[in-house]
Simulated scan of single mutants.
Amino acid sequence: MMTDGGIGALERELRTSRQMFRAAFHAAATGKAIVDVTGICVEVNASLAALLGHAPDALAGMHFADFTHPHDIRADLHLFEEVMRGERDSYQMEKRYLHKDGGIVHVLLTATVVREEDGTPISFLSEVVDLTERLEARQALQEANSRLQHQVVTDHLTGLYNRRGFEEALAGPLGHQASLLLIDLDHFKHINDRLGHRAGDMVLAEVGRRLPRQIRDGDVVARVGGDEFGIIMHHADRALAERTAARIVKQLGTVYEVDGAFAHIGASVGVSCTEDGDVSLRELVCRADEALYAAKRAGRSRWQLAA
């Protein structure tokens, strides 16, 4: 039998526990909420209110769906209902809340149920961690990796893919129709010998600007050597490849202005095509290479289709 003194001590212990809980709840740097079994917020701490742009007591009485992003409500309610059915005691999910100003707040929600002795749910204790900085750091890392990858496969002089980028593109799927063009600049050595390597670099940079204008978005164009370039054209038949090669010969053969001087070069192009994907891209390279040297032997500044 418990004495009056024992009962008083127990009450003081319970009161102290409740006070400690409330102090920790309201002083927590992370967002916290007490939610009833219908999803209504009974109490929300200042950190969660501030995270969502509300006054400390503004969220009390609101259903959590009222400030959950519409695309995340179904997943949250599904987990909530699993707890109510006794299938789990807690759940955790990344979700989006709606800020008072209309913005989106990315958070990590952990919701834990409090039950009666018989297992009946009484309420939920939710903890909300702001993921904004984590997501920004993740995005910054992804962007940095993307920039690094871009630098690895990009030729610094022309801005086109480099040989590595071209090799990676060659490893991709061929598709039903594909064409490959290899381009070699004619008489480019004369530019370096007569005007210097700086002038040669300026001509190469101009070639890097002219070539992409002759192809479609999605085609791959690369500088694969000193004055050698390659183009991969997916879903491109022979007629399109031939028209493209003719434009390239014409456009790369027009005059280049270099520091007030005028430079003249030409371009020889080897073309290979497949209509039914029966060869690999690397086989197309070999065929285009043979056609390129055939064009050079025939007098340069022209294009040649692989046999």
Rank of each mutant, 00 (worst) to 15 (best):
T3E: 02
G31A: 08
I122W: 06
D72N: 11
F64Q: 09
A263D: 09
D118T: 10
H26V: 04
M62W: 14
A261V: 12
H106Y: 15
V152W: 04
K100N: 12
I215E: 09
L240A: 06
K296T: 00
L180W: 02
H106W: 15
L284R: 02
I232R: 06
F80H: 10
H264P: 05
G218A: 08
D186A: 00
H54I: 10
G253I: 01
N145P: 09
V105Y: 12
T154E: 01
T68D: 11
A169S: 13
A46P: 02
E82Q: 15
F229S: 02
A144W: 06
I265R: 03
G5M: 14
M84E: 09
L252W: 03
G165K: 03
M2V: 15
F64I: 12
A137E: 14
H78I: 07
E127S: 14
G208D: 09
H54T: 04
W303N: 03
P56C: 11
V279A: 05
E127T: 14
K95G: 07
A261H: 11
R216Y: 04
A294L: 03
R302Y: 00
R223H: 01
N45Q: 10
R163L: 02
G175M: 08
H235N: 15
H150T: 14
P121D: 08
M20Y: 11
D66M: 14
R134G: 13
N145C: 13
H71P: 07
R163T: 01
A298M: 01
N192Q: 14
I183R: 00
D57R: 07
V220F: 04
A58E: 13
A137P: 05
G270H: 00
T132S: 15
